[in-house]
């Protein structure tokens, strides 16, 4: 298959996925469009090296996450994680459905959003993958660390968020 055809096929199968990832990193539609275009460019540039060792979705996530961390772009230093109240996997971060319902109230949700943006760049990347509903193993494959390391990092992020959101009342276990 020609490179152009492979590219178009990947694009048609993963358009939504890429767009969702882009939405996490900017609320501005122009910035989202720029990032979307940059992801497409990087998919093209990396396509010659795709050997099919991983699932195409994992491969696309890698390109998208690595693009978001890209050092030439303006996004790196001011990178923010934008989460919507209708994000399907929100409860996976909050680990608590009642807390999720509470935080869907606008003011509280803004606080949650602010706390998310206090996280480090890599923690934001981990959260964005979690929000995509990826398994720990898949996240580990994308970032390139062990599954247990991913679990530890995500556990720490959850504890940090809960502590912040409950005003420091959450107990560390």
């Amino acid at each position: 298959m020609k490179k152009e055809d492979r590219f178009n096929q990947i694009l048609s199968e993963n358009r939504e996925r890429i767009q969702r990832i882009c939405r996490y990193y900017s609320s501005n539609s122009e910035d989202q469009k720029d990032m979307y275009q940059e992801v497409l460019v990087n998919i093209w540039k990396s396509l010659d090296n795709f050997r099919g060792d991983s699932a195409i979705s994992t491969w696309v996530y890698r390109v998208a996450v690595n693009t978001s961390l890209s050092f030439t772009g303006k996004a790196f230093k001011q990178m923010k994680l934008i989460v919507n109240t209708d994000t399907q996997n929100l409860s996976s971060i909050l680990d608590d459905e009642s807390l999720e319902a509470k935080y869907k109230e606008e003011a509280r949700f803004n606080q949650f959003q602010n706390e998310l943006n206090q996280l480090s760049v890599i923690d934001k990347a981990l959260i964005s993958l979690m929000l995509e509903g990826l398994k720990m193993k898949e996240i580990a494959d994308i970032i390139g660390i062990s599954e247990s390391n991913v679990k530890v990092k995500i556990h720490r992020i959850k504890i940090y968020l809960k502590t912040k959101l409950t005003g420091g009342k959450h107990e560390f276990k």
Partner: peptide
Amino acid sequence: YVDYALPT
């Protein structure tokens, strides 16, 4: 080209 499909 930088390979963006490598693990991060």
